[in-house]
Nucleic acid binder design. Structure first.
Lengths: 329, 329
DNA sequence: CTGTTAGCGCCTTCAC
DNA sequence: GTGAAGGCGCTAACAG
């Protein structure tokens, strides 16, 4: 492995010039520049990143702390982050916090140790509650989850609105007893719950909601309990894709047909929601765009640490399908 | 941020002793050891990783180059890798090659620059064909995809066998004209195709196979073309979860009911395969275990670079569901 | 415009 | 058992 010294020797210049050429720094003759470039190519020189990072005190690395990598929403966000980051010569360190606040804290610590240039985080509720950007030596951009008053860059869906629209749609379809199952570990679940509550209240309807851990199993069990009661709701709404899956499984296990016996709707336009007859009505999230907006925001923040805190809100799109069809009066 | 010097000063010892204590090195008095530990705690000292890496010439970082992060198979593998890696004080750099050989090459290069301790790779066919472990300065463990004669550590499913069993199952159910749609970009698709061919040959049946890019869209189109022909096959088999999804969508678009009009089966026990009535028969892959075996192998290889090349083969499990049900003779 | 040089923070011989 | 000192490979400040 060639070192910068050898490149300098080969090009008959000083190491400083080599460094300057690599940095794309101005103030180098075209001639020396070329000699350096030739030497680099001739020796197949690749700068030592560890040395560079030690000296320059920057890592060009971003940490991606995702709350549940199995959730397709986050894998798509990760894909966007990965794409854009590498296009900008940044590395991505992947961390999966598994909806566990302790793991989140651990990973944030790790990021400190790694001296990353920035972090993307989708915090659980406890972490979000404690979250102060100033606690960290690196910029943090929140994705998917943040409170109204969180003083940090964030990219989120219009959760309240989307849930409001989804619920209103069900009401318009003639459903009245609409139940809402939502993730208890995230601000997102809460906000969607809020949108649901508002929509119900607007129409003078009683709410019927349950918070569950954001897993397929928990949702399946919760929905199962509801189903086994004597009085079935008219409709069930799930606050995200994982929960929607659990609910759908429970309905199927109980041999309940939608929309005939019960209507169904939820968040996240996963491929299978079209496959399950007659299709499930959902709010589609622009997942890739959310991810891209997040890493864009982070890169900008890294470049300009002092710029004003920003919040990007993307709109969810209602996709009506058979599962929410009109109730026969 | 405290430095090792300050810790040394605070503990009234030399930096060497601090370093020794941190390394858990023997030959330090319990007394000094305690003083150092106290100082570290008092100053909240955290060693600078960039400096340590420069000095020690090791990064304790593994690269994870996944061929398609949107494929749930790989997200589950990633989860396992992530889990185990961090438990072993290793970082994970995530790369998504998107089934693109050029990106794979790019990322492998990057891993070289990063001086990673090791790499996990699920190569496309072209990359696999060229692959020589000795081309890299770090150990590489292949996951999901490798040839019989690839001289590298690898963790894979028993692809040929599983496909053989799946196909045989369909034959036993009375299906005869069984078509196979498989991913053209991976050794895995090929091997599953081989198992299919063998099973068909064993029973003296003609094969009917098509290779497609490993995406939902490509599979949907391919299946669509097949379906629109005059003579429908008895059954369709998809070589992985993405392709199975595309095929299922095509069948649904054509309003074909399974198993009545056509039987269906595939690889990857994704949640939705149970949801689509009457359930799709699949080979379930032990995805998490595959990932864990892979990172385990890599960590062992890092610890003992000279050990013999190993191959771990995990067995796929046939899960019979309605979609492959007996053909009415 | 180019070269010399002083570290970045840590580990690790080497003396004592 | 402990400390002093050199150097990992690079960047950047300073001279020239």
């Amino acid at each position: 492995m060639a070192r910068i010294k050898e490149v300098a020797a080969q090009a008959k210049v000083s190491v400083a010039s080599v460094s300057r050429v690599m940095a794309g720094h101005a103030g180098v003759t075209a001639a020396t520049r070329q000699r350096v470039l030739d030497a680099i190519k001739a020796l197949d020189y690749r700068p030592d990143l560890a040395a560079r990072r030690l000296r320059s005190r920057r890592t060009d690395t971003v940490g991606l702390i995702v709350s549940d990598i199995r959730n397709p929403f986050f894998t798509e966000v990760s894909r966007a982050v990965e794409d854009v980051a590498y296009q900008n010569r940044m590395r991505v360190i992947l961390c999966n916090a598994d909806e566990d606040p302790e793991k989140e804290a651990l990973y944030l610590d790790l990021m400190q140790d790694e001296n990353v240039s920035g972090v993307i985080l989708s915090p659980t509720l406890p972490t979000l509650a404690r979250f102060r950007p100033s606690d960290y030596s690196f910029p943090v951009v929140l994705v998917d989850r943040c409170d109204r008053d969180t003083a940090a860059d964030a990219v989120v869906l219009d959760n309240v609105d989307s849930a409001y629209r989804l619920t209103s749609h069900l009401i318009e379809q003639g459903h009245r007893r609409i139940a809402f199952i939502y993730g208890a570990t995230s601000a997102t679940g809460r906000q969607r719950h809020e949108g649901y509550v508002t929509a119900m209240a607007t129409h003078g309807l009683e709410t019927l909601a349950k918070a569950v851990p954001a897993t397929v199993e928990a949702a399946r069990n919760a929905a199962g309990e509801w189903i086994s009661r004597r009085s079935l709701p008219d409709a069930l709404v799930a606050s995200n894709g994982l929960i929607l899956l659990g609910v759908t499984e429970a309905l199927q296990a109980a041999k309940l047909r939608f929309p005939d016996q019960i209507a169904l709707a939820g968040f996240d336009d996963l491929p299978w929601t079209r496959l399950v007859e007659p299709g499930i009505t959902v709010i589609a999230q622009p997942t890739y765009d959310l991810g891209r907006a997040t890493i864009d925001l982070l890169l900008q923040r890294i470049a300009q640490p002092a710029q004003a805190v920003r919040r990007v809100v993307l709109r969810g799109e209602l996709r009506e399908r058979g599962s929410s069809a009109k109730r026969r009066a």
